[in-house]
Design a protein around this nucleic acid. Structure first.
Lengths: 238, 238
DNA sequence: CGATATCTTGATAAGCATCAATGTGAGTGG
DNA sequence: CCACTCACATTGATGCTTATCAAGATATCG
């Protein structure tokens, strides 16, 4: 991994005042944040931090996708979240990281030193409220995930995942969604196995709900059907 | 439901300066919070707020236990959390409640008007940080729950639940834990069915890990075993 | 003390996991 | 440029875990 000081010339492409943390803050309020930030890159498979590490940084993803996961002693894995451009990670006041963060694709991120960051919470007006909003949002999605993991069928889980991915990519007609993660990642995100994910996708293809031109691109052919499946509203297995 | 103004005489028993929200704040900082709080009681089964309601309040539980849950259209339920004395609920910046909160036992709570509460975030020093700490803690437990719901076996789930309950009740030797919720609640909390919960408890009894004098009290006979089971460290089925 | 909700237990089956084989695609070196 | 390789994905056969449905036991409350 290599670090680029925030004064490096290509940083202009990632204007910090447009970052998630700073959005909504005045230019003046945002400046001290810029001062404690640094730009980083990670290659696929590289680990940003691991469960149990000292939690000393907060990151904002500028480009690429990161997976956050927890492990059981025997290796079972659950991916708690995929974090893509414009989202924060590491936002917690725990001393120790409670999950591992690993790059899926090539990733570019801002890194904020946690100590400096927390000092700013008291100094930068509006920052605390912004962080609360982010945390609140994460809590909301966490509850949605619990419902999914605890009570949805395989079909409903996979459909939910596709709806989520489609939503993040902000399209809405008949559309094609990029899937940067592997089937194994998807399985560990949904609490399924790779076989079940694959079979379920095949079933959705046969039902005409989706199409899969290449393994990493999924075309949504019937968004309504998919959303009904995701919500658990339909006859659970057509 | 009946409301008691905070000046009512029995309020002294629930000194607000010792509340979770105020703990760590100065007396002076805590005062404006007291001004916007009111004391409430709910009977078992009563609903504090329902999913979809306008989110206008934040509650702190003083006595009793509340269940928070989400429903699927066909009635499947997932309990996202049990909230007992000393914990907050409704802490979110969403306009709409994303879950339902319902009293399990007789419950006593403080209620803070959200609008007033949020105004105080900017005025009361340290309050924002306290709320961030609470949110951060909830996020941590939410991730633990996801791992449980997505990747743990029935035995591991039930053992985890018992360890959690024992921990909340702050005992640590050989001990008896009060279980205020029904088997159905436990099932919906763990993503299981009532039958599986009951069977798993019976299995733990046969293994000598626990004993159940009455349905609502569980005695932990081998805390180490139980914790190993909960962590997923043991031969998954003895 | 009877009525009703809750809990336990049993028989059966559905859903998903497991394990293994095959298929596919991207990158590599001959 | 093509065969090779390796990682990833799909598919199939089978079995385990847990759900489902139903009956019986226990507890709780008026």
């Amino acid at each position: 991994m290599y670090t680029i000081a925030p004064v490096a010339k290509d940083v202009s492409r990632f204007d910090l005042t447009r970052s998630v943390v700073c959005r909504g803050l005045s230019q003046q309020a945002a400046r001290p944040l810029m001062a404690i930030s640094s730009l980083h890159r990670k290659a696929p498979g590289e680990i940003l931090f691991a469960e149990g590490d000292e939690a000393d940084s907060i990151y904002e993803v500028l480009r690429g996708t990161v997976r956050l996961y927890k492990l059981l002693p025997d290796g079972r894995r659950l991916i708690t979240a995929f974090v893509s451009a414009g989202r924060l990670l590491g936002l917690a006041l725990d001393d120790v990281c409670v999950y591992t963060a690993e790059a899926i694709t090539d990733v570019t991120l801002y890194r904020y030193k946690r100590t400096a960051f927390e000092r700013l919470v008291d100094e930068v007006p509006g920052l605390a409220m912004r962080l609360l909003a982010v945390a609140s949002d994460e809590l909301r999605t966490a509850q949605e995930r619990m419902l999914l993991l605890g009570r949805k069928s395989a079909t409903e889980k996979v459909a939910s995942f596709l709806v989520l991915m489609a939503g993040q990519q902000g399209s809405d007609g008949a559309e094609e969604v990029a899937i940067p993660m592997t089937r194994s990642d998807i399985a560990d995100y949904l609490g399924l196995t790779i076989g079940t994910v694959s079979r379920t996708l095949t079933k959705l293809i046969r039902q005409g709900v989706i199409a899969i031109p290449t393994a990493n691109r999924i075309e949504i052919r019937d968004r309504d059907d998919l959303e009904h499946l995701a919500a658990g509203e339909t006859d659970r297995d057509l």
